[in-house]
Design a protein around this nucleic acid. Structure first.
Lengths: 126, 126
DNA sequence: CTAAAAGCTAACGTTGACGTCAGAGGCAAG
DNA sequence: CTTGCCTCTGACGTCAACGTTAGCTTTTAG
């Protein structure tokens, strides 16, 4: 498929796909006239990339870690790196959980409207 | 305390604290000569701010939501906004969990390291 | 064939949370 | 007093992941 279709399928912009290629995250064949051609699996790869971005991995990190991108090989180092990033994500989840809990506390506080934080006791508002 | 001490206690830079004030997230008294003076509780507030940043809230959002920052009041809107952000964080946690699981799959694959090199998509990822 | 739609490269613009530098002033100690 | 660290206010620099525009070629629809 061509770049527009892949973008639609993966839910990203055409620009993003070109950027991924520039960063070495996503390879593409070229038609005789230079247009990018992608296999069906590319959509899946793009979604994986998006997921790793969402987990705060940088392009460089993703490029270093994804095994197939550059005919990479599995080395003890790369596996350690993968495990380290996995653990980092675990830490991030813990952070987010804490933030959510704290936000819940703010919500509870806001709802019960206690001292220190004044709540106007005016007439019912629309 | 002065800004340097607060920065040390909260584990952020002096620049960050000035930035928080600029964004309306952190108020400060001033000495007669213009230096910022913070109460002890400021350290806690800074850590809360950091936690919300870690949860991908913007300065603007934090400023809008933190009830006491600007003598703000609890309105139905603000409470709805808080709940919405809380739910967004829940979504983020789900995303991160999915990313971690997928990374685990890559690790498992990498460990068994054979040819072909393909990472499966797994169940619906949103 | 022609025109619109889609692709290409190259390169500058954007945004957010600060980093960093410049130049000037405050503050306790020797 | 003066050395040395801290703080102040601007204001420009940074970095990543794209957005956007420009100008041109390729592909597709009629």
């Amino acid at each position: 498929m061509r770049i527009g279709e892949l973008a639609a399928r993966a839910g990203v912009s055409v620009r993003a796909l070109r950027y991924y290629e520039e960063q070495g995250l996503l390879a593409a064949d070229r038609s005789p006239r230079g247009q990018r051609r992608y296999p069906d699996e590319a959509a899946d790869r793009v979604r994986l990339i998006q997921q790793l971005y969402a987990a705060s991995l940088s392009s460089r990190t993703i490029a270093e870690l994804l095994p197939c991108v550059n005919a990479n090989v599995s080395t003890p180092e790369s596996r350690a790196r993968l495990a380290a990033e996995r653990d980092r994500i675990d830490g991030q989840i813990a952070e987010l959980t804490a933030a959510r809990d704290r936000l819940d506390a703010v919500i509870a506080y806001s709802t019960s409207a206690q001292s220190g934080c004044r709540v106007e006791a005016g007439p019912a508002t629309a």
